[in-house]
Design a protein around this nucleic acid. Structure first.
Lengths: 191, 191
DNA sequence: AAATGACCAATTTAGTATTTTAGTCAGTCG
DNA sequence: CGACTGACTAAAATACTAAATTGGTCATTT
């Protein structure tokens, strides 16, 4: 199309700025300048800065979902799939500019808007895993259980192992984490 | 004894003040006044404010260990004991003035000294649970596994379930948590 | 010798001036 | 006409500074 898609320009500029400077340090003037657009134009598409940010987070969630779907394999076992999904999420979080910046802002400044956004991202991952687990239950691959609690526990355990454990210990390799998941969650500790 | 035990007075005053106002808002003048002692006297027993605080945390750790030991039962199963210990730790954290205040200060102000102290408390709980798990392994009650990672995973899972889960869901009852522990960690999900 | 509190340097806080920013809207331009 | 703009404003954040507080010391007292 001949006319410029201003909304798209704004979203691209905002994504770039949030990735580079985080939520707080990104100004609407900056986004307008980056998008080559008058500031008022932003407000014809987005009611507030927060709404603009939420749209960016929606894209982020979609991107993660796409990434995760690309490694899923219907015919593989639950364990295999859960490990692939979590590992992919983890790699994504550590390589994607926007998530890196937001995790940092959440930790260092505790910006409320950012905290809420990251929780929304986490929730969406849990919802996605919930689906995987429900399928495994239906197939009879694993025991009947609350799929949401199970997804929640898996995500928390994964992030504990990759983030918190290395605060006091050498980091665990990907295969080690997979082994731990298998032992704790699937086989169980009982002899 | 006829002479007043000034060190004890200081420790009691400090414990009271830290419980009431937290670490940052407690001043050495205040502790001195509360203990009916000259400020200089504090410095004959403790090099710095931080050292005084660390002694208080040591008492806290000892107190938790005592609480935990009182509910342990050598002849009960690992599951039973782990659940008792974690539940006791949780109840303690929610009822003990000092821990309440410090958890709050950690969350709201992010005081570095407090963050480090709470991590030390957590570490000591993990070390204690490590012992329980090692015994269960020796008895052949559970599979061979790294007892420290196992203790770590158990504590993290417990705190996730009692603290994070209720951010978006109705809180889980103590028996529900026990059931989840049994399912996820002991029996495993595999059919 | 043990204990004290006035004292000091350094940090924190409170108060205020200045700047920045989210959001608006009268006016421009295609 | 209507999409678009950027100067404008009220509110919020920041920078600055003076005043107060605090951790720690040490000469003096008990």
């Amino acid at each position: 199309m001949a006319v410029i898609d201003r909304k798209k320009l704004i979203l691209e500029a905002a994504a770039k700025s949030f990735s580079l400077y985080g939520y707080k340090a990104t100004t609407m003037d900056q986004v307008a300048k980056l998008a080559n657009v008058g500031k008022g134009t932003i407000y014809t598409f987005f009611k507030t800065k927060e709404e603009l940010f939420e749209e960016i987070i929606n894209s982020l969630i979609a991107e993660i979902r796409y990434e995760v779907e690309s490694v899923m394999n219907e015919s593989a076992s639950v364990l295999e799939n859960v490990n692939r999904v979590l590992s992919r999420v983890h790699v994504f979080r550590e390589s994607h500019q926007l998530t890196i910046k937001l995790i940092q802002e959440e930790r260092d400044m505790g910006t409320q808007t950012v905290i809420e956004a990251m929780q929304r991202v986490e929730q969406s991952i849990i919802q996605y895993m919930k689906g995987i687990i429900q399928k495994a239950i239906d197939k009879g691959e694993i025991k009947t259980c609350n799929p949401e609690v199970t997804a929640f526990v898996m995500l928390k355990m994964y992030f504990s192992l990759v983030n918190d454990w290395q605060r006091n210990h050498p980091p665990l390799k990907k295969e080690e984490i997979a082994k731990l998941f298998e032992l704790y969650l699937l086989k169980g500790l009982l002899t």
